[in-house]
Computed example of a mutant assay.
Amino acid sequence: SRVKDEPAYYCNECDVEVFNLLFVTSENGSRKTYVVHCEDCARQRSPNLSNVVVLEQYRMEELMNVYDSFTLAISPSSR
């Protein structure tokens, strides 16, 4: 899960911010590095997502609870 002050992730290909579902590939080299992609770019690289690991930062139920319990606060200046 996401930890406090963890930076936002961006797709390595198109630079769009990736939220919640991270499509991660491993780059080969002298050291093991992991690269984040958005779903569109991950599917362009591999339509069936072979060699792609999908990481979920938040559980869907948690996001639904946040959305369902959201209330808009009234601005102090509008009273």
Rank of each mutant, 00 (worst) to 15 (best):
Y9Q: 14
N65V: 07
N48W: 05
F70W: 11
E56Y: 09
Q57E: 06
C11K: 01
R31Y: 11
Y34K: 08
R43W: 00
N48Y: 10
E17Y: 00
T71K: 14
R59V: 04
E6I: 05
V35E: 06
R59D: 09
E61G: 14
S69E: 03
P47I: 08
F23Y: 15
E6F: 06
A42L: 00
S78H: 12
Y67S: 06
V54C: 10
Y9C: 13
S50C: 07
T25S: 15
N28W: 09
Q57L: 06
R79I: 08
C38W: 01
E6R: 08
R79C: 04
P47S: 10
S69D: 03
R45K: 12
G29M: 04
K32W: 07
C41K: 07
M64A: 14
S50D: 13
E27Y: 12
V53Y: 11
F70I: 02
E27F: 13
V36P: 00
V54A: 07
Y67H: 09
R45Y: 04
L21C: 12
L49I: 02
S75H: 15
E13V: 15
S78P: 00
C11Y: 02
Y58L: 04
V52N: 01
Y10N: 04
T33V: 07
S77E: 07
N48Q: 10
S77Y: 04
L22P: 01
G29D: 04
A8I: 08
D40P: 00
D68R: 10
A8Y: 09
N48E: 12
V16T: 13
Q44G: 03
L22F: 05
S77G: 00
C38A: 06
V35F: 00
A42S: 08
E27V: 15
Y10L: 01
V18C: 08
L22A: 03
T33M: 01
D68L: 09
S26R: 15
S46V: 02
E62G: 10
R59G: 11
Y67Q: 06
L63T: 11
S75R: 11
D40M: 01
P47Y: 10
T25R: 15
A8R: 11
